[in-house]
């Protein structure tokens, strides 16, 4: 599951924003309305792509670590292995995983972000 924030947290923030939608159109409100629109579009993308992204991430983690487990557990194991030095930060298999993960996440979070083009374009 994508966290920080989860889709449920985003939805809760949106609900709160929509409930308060009575104030005058001050610049802050206009700005937040644009952020809210972005959040709705993100949630739509996550509803379509989220499950496949997590399945792909979990499958790659299992291969990289050579063990089975759920996504959260495997992801934590990878973090621990990197922190302890068991996996080198520029290990090619690790970088392949981080690359695929970054591409799948940006497709949900911010598909127009130019770092994607930069990563693919080199």
């Amino acid at each position: 599951m994508i966290t920080c924030p989860t889709a449920a947290e985003l939805q809760a923030a949106l609900t709160l924003f929509d409930r308060d939608d009575a104030g005058p159109a001050d610049p802050r409100r206009v700005f937040l309305a644009r952020v809210a629109d972005n959040a709705r579009a993100l949630l739509d993308r996550e509803a379509t792509l989220g499950e496949a992204a997590e399945a792909g991430e979990r499958a790659r983690l299992a291969v990289l670590l050579g063990v089975e487990g759920d996504f959260t557990d495997l992801n934590r194991q990878l973090c621990d292995a990197l922190r302890s030095g068991a996996i080198e930060p520029r290990d090619p298999a690790l970088l392949d995983h981080l690359r695929a993960t970054a591409i799948a996440r940006i497709a949900i979070d911010q598909p127009g972000y130019c770092g994607l083009e930069a990563l693919l374009g080199d």
Partner: peptide, 15 residues
């Protein structure tokens, strides 16, 4: 919503 959404900018720094 602004503070919630900024968490999803972490992935831009990851890429």
């Amino acid at each position: 919503i602004e503070r919630a959404m900024i968490g999803r900018r972490v992935s831009e720094t990851e890429i």
